[in-house]
């Protein structure tokens, strides 16, 4: 059972826990849109320490507007995006109205 569906707006936790973490720092605290749900995978932050990684976590592709990430401080065109694969325990539902376009 996955919590989010394509099109949902989601925010990435602005958290900095120690250990093996797969959520890129540059996306923490930002809001993006779910593109697809890939299924559930063993939790990598547990697998890294020899544990089973159970229960598995839902994994989503989440896309972010470049402007929301870099606020103009980069070399991209209007409408360019960056997508990352983020586990469900890092995501919270966000208001749909935040969408800029």
């Amino acid at each position: 059972m996955s919590r989010f569906a394509p099109g949902d707006r989601v925010s990435v936790a602005k958290a900095f826990p120690p250990g093996h973490v797969r959520t890129p720092t540059f996306l923490r605290g930002l809001t993006g849109t779910v593109v697809r749900h890939f299924g559930a995978f063993p939790n990598p932050s547990l697998l890294a320490y020899g544990m089973s990684g159970q229960p598995p976590l839902n994994l989503y592709q989440v896309v972010f507007d470049m402007d929301d990430v870099w606020d103009g401080d980069g070399e991209y065109a209007a409408g360019d995006t960056v997508a990352a694969d983020i586990y469900e325990n890092w995501l919270e539902a966000a208001p749909q109205s935040n969408r800029k376009d």
Binding site: F41, P44, A83, D85
Partner: peptide, 15 residues
């Protein structure tokens, strides 16, 4: 072209 969206895919997990 700038009319084409460039989408960077960061493969951060099992994909």
């Amino acid at each position: 072209p700038t009319s084409t969206e460039v989408r960077v895919l960061d493969s951060t997990a099992d994909i």
